[in-house]
Write a protein that binds this DNA or RNA. Structure first.
Lengths: 214, 214
DNA sequence: GTAACGCTGTGAATTTTTTCACAGTAAGAC
DNA sequence: GTCTTACTGTGAAAAAATTCACAGCGTTAC
């Protein structure tokens, strides 16, 4: 494990992208890759790639670039996928179901181990291999399974309660789709993903471009 | 329209969040808000809020803070929601459907006006008020409707073709869920939203927190 | 052998983003 | 009226992120 220096969110995002890309390159059988090429595939600059890899203490060769399998291994370990991570999903609406669907055949070290919903119609069954429970047993099940992460796709009004319960049960990372600022202890990491915000951003810049075009 | 200075992605994201929050505050009937309070609701600092509003040329009062309806109006206009924006969705899988669902009762100026899919089973009908077409007519329909934005939720292998067709038909902003770097002309804005990347980020920091706890 | 090439690793410079800190101001108390 | 208070607007400082630019090196060509 390289070092514990504080690594920023931005760098982690890029490392994750490098990892996904490297997996594909590895499958294709390419043994080496230059910073320049990896950069292009990920939409960043070559200097950025080199700097990021420097940050996690990985070195390449000046003639052959980076060894793909070795780098993949290193990035994977750095991100903590050496061991299995368990997570749960709360809220089995359309978005929740899309996520359940999404997990089929994804990162095998990120395991979605349970899903919860208040609606009785949606629980006590298995969707895409994931068992669905009523929220009433959420705290208990999460603690028992030692899940580390929670994905929140419930309506805004329920999000804070869900978050609190998850945190009490040992969860230290949340991905929150509800458009509300969650209050959690400082040791818990929260990533907010507000679809409206993302769309409005695209709308703004789409407008800018359209303006320039005229 | 305030000014032409280059405004960064980061600022636009925050403005969008302020906007959503202000709408709720407005509905609640509060007429004024301090930078400090808006900041807390959005998870940023007060100085940040003041700086951002300064960037779009909005001023408050030293005694009453910001006038809520006026600020909401200003931010809305700045983001370009004075007029209607049309967008289309390509890929009516689980994620696409979740997004169709999501749009019910959202920003009334961001109109999802059509959806497309290759699968014949999914088209020629109306889902949540949105008409679904086969991709074969996509270019034609998009151009006719003058859609400005496209949301791509097709598999990785089809994403580039879809993007190219959309751009040819006049789209200048893309929200891309496929884990691939799209090649588009420089006047087109692309926002990539890779769920895997977001999750891996949460996993990393959840791990860090869990480690600290021990 | 040695020359030429094109890569990495990385200090240093630059640019961008965020925070600090305080002058200026309007409202309310009295 | 004057005093107090708590806010905004904003230069300036600080911090963070990115890019530059080049020394140093392994490989290949000849």
């Amino acid at each position: 494990m390289p070092d514990k220096t504080k690594i920023s969110k931005r760098i982690i995002e890029r490392l994750s992208e490098y990892r996904t890309t490297l997996e594909e390159i590895d499958i294709h059988g390419n043994r080496n890759i230059y910073s320049h090429d990896l950069a292009k595939l990920c939409g960043v600059t070559a200097a950025q790639v080199r700097r990021d890899l420097m940050n996690i203490g990985f070195s390449g060769s000046s003639a052959r670039g980076y060894d793909v399998p070795e780098l993949l291994q290193n990035v994977t370990n750095f991100l903590g996928f050496g061991e299995e991570r368990r997570m749960v999903l709360v809220g089995i609406g359309h978005l929740g179901r899309a996520l359940l669907d999404f997990f089929v055949d994804r990162n095998p070290k990120l395991v979605l181990c349970a899903a919860f919903d208040v609606n009785e119609m949606r629980v006590n069954r298995v969707i895409h291999g994931v068992r669905c429970y009523p929220v009433s047993v959420m705290g208990e099940v999460v603690a028992e399974m030692q899940a580390q992460m929670g994905i929140i796709t419930v309506p805004e009004s329920a999000a804070q309660d869900v978050a609190s319960t998850l945190v009490e049960s040992g969860v230290t990372g949340l991905l929150n789709f509800a458009p509300v600022q969650l209050r959690v202890p400082s040791h818990v990491f929260v990533e907010n993903l507000n679809i409206s915000t993302v769309l409005e951003k695209v709308a703004y810049f789409a407008g800018q471009s359209a303006e320039k075009e005229r």
